[in-house]
Nucleic acid binder design. Structure first.
Lengths: 242, 242
DNA sequence: AAGTGGTCTAGACCACGTC
DNA sequence: ACGTGGTCTAGACCACTTT
């Protein structure tokens, strides 16, 4: 038989898409409860089980968080236990103290070929670049260079970064309405250049872990390109294969 | 109110545990179909929906693979598309040709302190050690040292490894009944020692990506400890954060 | 007591693969 | 035509949190 409906989409997935639009449009904000399953079922005129399956998928993607007896909440980067999600760095001894972010520079520029390609911008479009250090117990471990679309992050300055007590993604979420939901990282081993070596207080040429990341928001739209150099003498990058 | 049942376990999870025992005991082998949902529901005297939820979880953990219209199958490492699951290496240019495994050595030894701890063995217990090279398009990219419990892998020799056309985990699965289902990796950047540098044909001191892995089989039992040194001049380690 | 998500059931129908 | 997994429904009851 001919394949009649190559675009077949089950009901629960259509419901999911409607809810995704709600999230993207800001109908429900990070940290807030969304309506109960029964309410959503009534709104969309489907059974509770169908809404449930839509929510299940979104919870599996870390977009929503279910809490029995309380409701279903829009996920947020403020939750401290979600810190390991986007920074998989662990001390070689058991020390679990969280890192401190030390912003170094923040300036505006025009997107070059590569930045434009990665962030899906026009070459020459305004971008914002951040350089910062991550320290564990006062010792420098990561130096990051972060490229952001200038339009979205118009109000981002060094002062804003210095005043921020939370993670970078918490700041992006609360101050710029930009929520990171997924990222791809590419890891390589490189030799420390002079500038990085100075910041990390190691000899030039020291092997460093280069971590290149593209982060995406709703609709798989890339909104951050970053390159970090990790000093892995006292820390390691942890990954779970499953 | 007092928490009456701290050990509450829903029905579908009990079913799942029963099925896990079936997998572990070898009742169903990798690649084979398991009984239909209706059959399992009858066997366990529960509804099909409950069996379904048990299978859903196991499919999410890559233990089972559902195929609409055909049945549910025990996952296997033979599936070529599962190669990226445990070897997240990608060419920097788009070249997608798979790697070739070149076994170098295979010998028996007694577990030292660290190997015993990681593999949950008695110090002095027999272990098997494998050294091998991974080449892409003929060029050496990875040198691996692999520690295995000697009891389980008694028949493993260099000849067996050389005769094997599939992945290492396929061999372990088919020849030794040992299926890897999960692994933890720790990544660091290190300088190439002399031996590795020679094998990878790079100068001593070249930055290499050190990948230390512990792989687990059913019941979270560790059964492999490996350390790989990756040459990342032409390849990178890809990771998805979500 | 009331409201939320979590579990379990039973049955109907759909999409896919095989015979 | 048949068997498989996939979707959808409606209703009952359980576990957790708040009022």
């Amino acid at each position: 038989m001919a394949q009649e409906s190559p675009t077949f989409s089950p009901l629960y997935r259509q419901i999911k898409n409607l809810m995704l639009q709600g999230l993207e449009a800001g109908e429900w904000h990070p940290g807030e409860v969304i309506p109960s399953e029964a309410e959503l079922a009534a709104r969309f005129s489907v059974s509770q089980g169908t809404v449930r399956k839509a929510i299940d998928e979104m919870a599996a993607e870390n977009l929503l968080v279910r809490k029995q007896g309380k409701g279903t909440f829009v996920a947020t980067h403020d939750d401290p236990r979600s810190n390991f999600r986007f920074l998989r760095l662990m001390s070689l001894d058991g020390d679990g103290t969280p890192p401190r972010s030390v912003p170094l520079e923040c300036w505006r520029a025009k997107a070059g070929q590569e930045a434009a390609r990665v962030l899906c911008l026009e070459p020459g479009a305004p971008i914002t670049i951040v350089r910062r250090l991550l320290t564990y117990s006062g010792k420098p471990v990561v130096v990051d260079e972060i490229y952001l679309p200038g339009e979205v992050f118009r109000g981002l300055t060094l002062e804003v970064l210095q005043d921020c007590k939370d993670s970078l993604y918490s700041l992006f979420e609360s101050q710029f309405g930009m929520r990171m939901i997924r990222a791809e990282e590419r890891l390589r081993a490189v030799a420390a250049d002079r500038s990085s070596a100075e910041l990390l207080k190691v000899p030039e040429g020291t092997p460093l872990l280069s971590v290149e990341r593209v982060a995406y928001t709703y609709g798989d739209k890339p909104v951050e390109w970053r390159r970090g150099l990790y000093l892995t003498s006292g820390h390691c990058y942890v990954n779970e294969l499953s």
